[in-house]
Design a protein around this nucleic acid. Structure first.
Lengths: 220, 220
DNA sequence: GTCTATACAGGGATAGAC
DNA sequence: GTCTATCCCTGTATAGAC
């Protein structure tokens, strides 16, 4: 799982995808979006139900029953179960990024900090991993769009940080910033999967810190 | 996806898991395993069906129909659909490792070579990614065991190569070989997922080669 | 716009024929 | 040991009530 970057590009792309309309100024207020209130209620109920029964054990019918509606009603607000899961993940993500200002760390430190936070919420890490591979299947075009845009915006963000470090002479110039950005994200995601499968054998932070040999940071 | 290592440890662990008995000498021959012949037939049919309809579009009922049996019959040989998918993946894997002797490359070159081969078989890469996240869910204990053992044996293999390189002075001694092994695998897996989602934007080989700055190889 | 009813195909589980 | 029949619970799709 990746850190709590403000994935604005992915947010916008996804909102447009879901609502079918761009968030243009001019109709920015008003009831242009269908019952985002009800959506929030459902998401909140889903989160609390996932917390007790787990994501796997929570079907749309179970969730609908808990709320008092049929499972079809849920699909009126979320085109698919995956879409609901994406929203649950985004809700958690925003909770994190709302929790205080982020110190301007380097790329590697940022990912290590994110991974450390994730150690206390393995369920969310699993959820993120599930969404990522769901995005690979052709059956989930919406999930695919969201995840791809999320990766793109994360990569762009890290790439910018790396280029800045290169300007300051901290990182070698020969390194391709785009490659390095993709590498750091991939390492973080992949290590957390190995950690979920084998917590005793894999130390995400320790392994990630090896990347500081490629991307040195002043703090390190 | 990881390279075509001879994952003997994972193989053994999985065989024991599936058959419920260890492959001890003394009853190594004989018909101790139920109809491995029929299993092979089913796997072969599954592969050819996946090749045409795709994995997603191939249900157990469809596959059973193609063979001429009910879907329940398939579950007599495979405890779950995932188990069948694991076998399909293993079949492909063995095909690769049978295809000629592997030159003794370093860890990074090995992963790059594997990733390059995978570019021509994105379906298999997707399958591998799916199995990996399925392994994270509690519902798939058999998949979990197989994937975990596979990671363990891959890590052990790379760790050995890295330690050897440290003995030869190619790799810095301060580097933890276990961390480095997990890192290389994670980077390879994670990059291939990003590549599947965004082939134009992500270059797996190029990004992976950055790791040679941590783990230098004579050939590089 | 909000929601129910209903049908369908999927994986999984069980009972039982042979 | 091999396999069919059948049932359950999913997510998904559609029709239609209000």
């Amino acid at each position: 799982m990746s850190p709590d970057a403000s994935t604005t590009a992915a947010d916008r792309a996804y909102d447009e995808l879901v609502t079918g309309q761009q968030d243009q100024p001019g109709r920015a207020r008003g009831p242009y979006r269908k019952s985002s209130e009800r959506r929030r209620q459902i998401i909140a109920s889903a989160i609390s139900l996932f917390a007790t029964r787990g994501v796997d054990g929570s079907s749309l019918r179970t969730l609908g029953e808990a709320i008092g509606v049929s499972h079809s009603a849920l699909r009126h607000y979320f085109a698919s179960r995956d879409e609901l899961l994406v929203e649950v993940y985004r809700a958690h993500e925003h909770t994190i990024s709302d929790g205080g200002a982020q110190p301007p760390l380097g790329p590697v430190s940022t990912m290590i900090a994110g991974a450390r936070r994730n150690r206390s919420i393995p369920g969310l890490v699993r959820l993120y991993a599930t969404l990522t591979t769901d995005a690979l299947q052709e059956q989930h075009p919406a999930t695919r769009t969201y995840v791809r845009e999320r990766f793109r915006s994360l990569r762009a963000q890290l790439e910018g940080q790396i280029r800045e470090a290169q300007r300051q002479g901290t990182v070698a110039e020969e390194i391709d910033a785009a490659d390095a950005a993709a590498l750091v994200i991939a390492a973080s995601d992949g290590l957390q999967i190995q950690w979920l499968l084998d917590p005793e054998e894999v130390d995400v932070g320790s392994a990630l810190s090896l990347l500081a040999r490629i991307l040195p940071e002043q703090g390190a």
